[in-house]
Design a protein around this nucleic acid. Structure first.
Length: 320
DNA sequence: CGGATTTGACCGGCGC
DNA sequence: GCGCCGGTCAAATCCG
């Protein structure tokens, strides 16, 4: 990305005309010739400074370009490494996350860690016969649910729209809870399209960035995604792009080896509630460009040499 | 009036 | 064994 092409570095300082004015003045008032000679020298010095500034700006632009490339590479490597670590941890200790001083936040039900949902049902084996019947009913379902876990990040522009992630399926909210590590409530959804569908969904705003909704899918749908007509009947704001998003729990879920992290950004969608998979770097690059322009403008205004040249150009134009 | 949502209570796993 | 915490249930409430 060449920022120099984005910024007009010439700034149209009109230094040239100042020199011609000085030459004309020389002819008209010979007594002031020495003063104008000095002025001419100063103008040429300013011109050199301007060239140096342009050169410096080009150099900084090239440096920024290199840094952006390095940052992109680092991000890619980080994501790859992170998924490898997750795979390794889950393969090494599938029942529980690795213990440690920070293990407290990960103290969750086993079913969330992606494997042992039957343990919860087995825990009630010592109770009454009705409980046993319940656990017999619940056990196979839980085993199914914990088969696949996927996680989806959805950025939303409207923080007050609630914990609704349009993904092409029908969900019924059955609970909401405020968790310890996040001030935002977590909503629990079941698939309501088919009562026998074992899929569950948890939606919670990210603690770090509350514009990001984190939805965690557990299990696999035993029915196809809603048709476009069905989606529009249930939610008129749904669009074709939502249909593609609806396949996320299938296409991005992993086996019990670990969760998948998918970054989705709907801020660029025409409608706020649309979900759309977008390549990450593009909006970031635009933001980076804007930031760079602002920083360059800021540094230029702080540069006394530049402001002096600018003042000379303006005064020359006014005198002219 | 029926389905969806809300919300407080309850259950069970887990760490201490 | 106790208390904390996440997950689920179910009655109450809302809404079209």
């Amino acid at each position: 990305m060449d920022y120099s092409s984005l910024i007009n570095t010439s700034l149209e300082l009109k230094i040239g005309p100042v020199r011609t004015e000085a030459s004309t003045a020389l002819k008209q008032w010979p007594l002031a010739a020495n003063d104008f000679m000095e002025l001419e020298k100063k103008v040429s010095v300013k011109q050199q400074e301007k060239n140096a500034l342009v050169e410096e700006m080009n150099r900084v632009s090239a440096e920024n370009k290199k840094l952006t490339e390095v940052l992109t590479a680092v991000c890619e490597k980080y994501n790859a490494l992170r998924s490898q670590v997750m795979d390794y941890l889950m393969a090494k200790n599938p029942e529980r996350p690795s213990p440690g001083p920070n293990s407290r936040p990960s103290r969750k039900r086993k079913c969330e860690s992606g494997n042992d949902g039957a343990a919860a049902a087995n825990g009630s084996s010592g109770s009454s016969s009705t409980d046993e019947e319940e656990s017999l009913i619940k056990r196979p379902r839980k085993e199914k649910i914990t088969a696949k876990i996927s996680r989806v990040f959805v950025r939303t522009e409207r923080p007050n729209t609630g914990l609704i992630v349009k993904d092409g399926y029908l969900w019924r909210k059955y609970g909401q809870k405020i968790t310890r590590d996040n001030p935002c409530p977590r909503a629990y959804f079941k698939c309501s399209f088919d009562p026998s569908c074992p899929v569950k969904k948890k939606v919670q705003r990210s603690a770090k960035d509350q514009s990001v909704l984190v939805s965690t899918y557990e299990g696999e749908h035993n029915h196809p995604v809603l048709s476009q007509a069905d989606q529009e009947a249930t939610d008129p704001t749904c669009s074709r792009s939502v249909t593609s998003l609806g396949s996320v729990p299938h296409s991005n879920s992993l086996s019990s080896t670990g969760p998948t992290v998918v970054a989705l950004d709907v801020t660029k969608s025409k409608r706020a509630n649309e979900g759309k998979v977008l390549p990450g770097p593009k909006p970031e690059s635009l933001e980076l460009q804007r930031l760079l322009v602002e920083q360059m403008a800021s540094s230029l205004t702080k540069d006394t040499a530049f402001t002096a040249a600018l003042a000379a150009a303006i005064s020359g134009r006014i005198l002219h």
